[in-house]
Every structure is written in structure tokens, then in C-alpha cells.
């Protein structure tokens, strides 16, 4: 399922029109290769959330191009018919809070996206269990989300984001509620999974303790992205 990462060119987003129009994104250019984890950093109001929503096909950009793997998904308009299926099959999400479905056990939380895509329950659960094992939470497969620690919940959320093998994962401050040790562990997992599944991962963060782990960082300020060449700045996890 993995492809050629994600490429964004000249992406813009304008809210409103006329005198009240606000340009939340003015010029966004990003390239994330398969197996790469990049950071997206910016102050409040810089356009991070808007960019994440555009990348996640939750809101429609106003201009620009988005290419996911080999497929142009946006070019002055959506190029895919079923946005919901695009989100389900091509984009994985990991949130600041894990947002697991409280009434499903760990296995079914992870197995839900493939089930929604029409995969048979047994097959979906097998995929989920394999991922849980890769993330070292297979022993909590039957537990309910409320019975997990914060770190375990975040690993389960990562497994849910990965289960459909999307070419890109958007991680929205995934380490915010975690201490340093657990935060670094989560970033290590994301790096491992990116390499293992050839997935491009964009991590939106304010977290000072994980910023040095990124080999490449995009800064966003006033709706414009700037790439920071961070070769040699990242430390081994």
C-alpha cells in the first residue's frame, strides 16, 4: 500500500471572503518521502491545524496541489470522488489524545478502519493483532481503552493509524500528554513504523524534547512553510 510519500505544492487556504477573508495558509510546500518522519513546528495561529485538516482531507484547500503516493488528490479541487474512503484508506491519524473508541476493546479499535473498508472481521483482527505485536501491546489486546496507561493508549492509536497501511500518517502532537521517556518512545515507534511500512509521517508538535529527533523539520509561520535542513542535528533514538 505504501507509495511515494506526500508532495504538497503551493497549498493555500482562505477562510471567508471579501473584507473578512483570512488567509490561513498562504504558501505551503512540503515533500515527505516514504519511511521518513518530519516535524511540523509553528506557534499558535501559524496555520498548523489548518494544514493538518487540509492534509487529512477534512477541509478543502483553496488552491495548490496535493499528491499522495502516485495519485493527485487535490489540484484546484478534489480529484477523488470519495473523500471518506480517501481518509480511511490513504491517511492515518494519530491525535494528541488517543481518542480510542471507549466501547471497543484494543483489538477492535485497531481493526475498525479495515472493517469499515469492508475487510472481513477475522482478517481485520489478524492485521490488528500483528500491529499490536509490532508495537508491543499485544498483551493488552482484549483490554478496554480505559484499562490502558497513557503510553499504551497512544501505541494503540498509532496501530489504528497504521492498520490500513496508509502512505501517509498525520500525527497531531502525539507526545503532548507524555513524559520525556514515553514521548521519545512514541517517536521511536513512529520512526520504526515509518521504515517498516514505508509510510511518510508528519508530526505536528510543540514538544521541545522530541524536536531534536527529527532529521527534517518544516516550520510554519503566518501560513508559509520553511524547511529546516536538519541533517546531522537529529540524535539516534
Amino acid at each position: 500500500m505504501s507509495g511515494k510519500g506526500i508532495r504538497i505544492e503551493g497549498l493555500r487556504k482562505r477562510y471567508g471572503s471579501g473584507d473578512t477573508a483570512v488567509d490561513a495558509l498562504k504558501e505551503v510546500n512540503m515533500v515527505v518521502a516514504p519511511g521518513e518522519v518530519v516535524g511540523l513546528i509553528g506557534p499558535s495561529g501559524s496555520g498548523k491545524s489548518t494544514l493538518l485538516k487540509c492534509l487529512g482531507a477534512v477541509i478543502e484547500p483553496s488552491a495548490g496541489t496535493m499528491i499522495l503516493g502516485d495519485e493527485t488528490i487535490y489540484d484546484k479541487g478534489w480529484k477523488v470522488k470519495d473523500i471518506r474512503a480517501l481518509r480511511r484508506d490513504k491517511i492515518g491519524f494519530v491525535f494528541q489524545a488517543p481518542y480510542l473508541i471507549p466501547f471497543l476493546d484494543v483489538t477492535d479499535n485497531v481493526a475498525l478502519p479495515p472493517m469499515l473498508a469492508g475487510v472481513a472481521n477475522k482478517e481485520a483482527r489478524n492485521s490488528a493483532l500483528a500491529l499490536l505485536e509490532a508495537l508491543d501491546v499485544q498483551h493488552r489486546a482484549k483490554a478496554m481503552p480505559s484499562q490502558l496507561s497513557g503510553g499504551e493508549q497512544q501505541r494503540v492509536a498509532i496501530a489504528r493509524g497504521l492498520v490500513n497501511r496508509p502512505p501517509v500518517i498525520l500525527a497531531d502532537e502525539p507526545t503532548a500528554p507524555l513524559d520525556s521517556e514515553r514521548a521519545l518512545a512514541v517517536i521511536k515507534i513512529l520512526n520504526d513504523m515509518a521504515k517498516k511500512f514505508e509510510t511518510a509521517i508528519i508530526v505536528v508538535t510543540h514538544d521541545e524534547k522530541i524536536i531534536p529527533t527529527f532529521k527534517r523539520i518544516y516550520h510554519i509561520r503566518d501560513g508559509v512553510t520553511y524547511e529546516e535542513k536538519g541533517e546531522g542535528r537529529a540524535f539516534d533514538l
Partner: peptide, 8 residues
């Protein structure tokens, strides 16, 4: 979340 992960 369900909607975001593609639930109809």
C-alpha cells in the same frame, strides 16, 4: 473520530 477514519 469515527467520521475521520472513514465511517459512513
Amino acid at each position: 473520530v469515527l467520521k475521520l477514519i472513514g465511517t459512513r
